[in-house]
């Protein structure tokens, strides 16, 4: 699947169901990585503001999303 032709075929798939499913999977992966790294940053003593800056979102947004679970 790493071959360039396959990649071009699916990433730029004209079939919405394939393309949308790939976008969903990518979002789930991004969400998982973000949650993991926010927890990591908090364990290392990062302030919510620093995490927000790194993610390019507001402090309120990141705090609201993660404060309860960390």
């Amino acid at each position: 699947m790493t071959d360039a032709k396959d990649l071009a075929e699916s990433a730029a798939s004209a079939d919405p169901s394939t393309g949308l499913r790939a976008a969903l999977a990518l979002r789930r992966l991004a969400d998982s990585l973000e949650r993991l790294q926010v927890a990591n940053a908090r364990r290392q003593g990062w302030a919510w503001q620093e995490i927000a800056d790194a993610l390019e979102v507001s402090r309120q947004a990141v705090h609201k999303k993660y404060a309860k679970e960390m």
């Binding site: 699947m1 790493t2 396959d6 990649l7 699916s10 990433a11 798939s13 394939t18 499913r21 790939a22 969903l24 999977a25 990518l26 789930r28 992966l29 969400d31 998982s32």
Partner: peptide, 18 residues
Amino acid sequence: GRLGEEDAEALSSLGIDL
């Protein structure tokens, strides 16, 4: 929302090895 088999397949279509 756990990343499952279908997600792995969809990601591999983008060249990402989950």
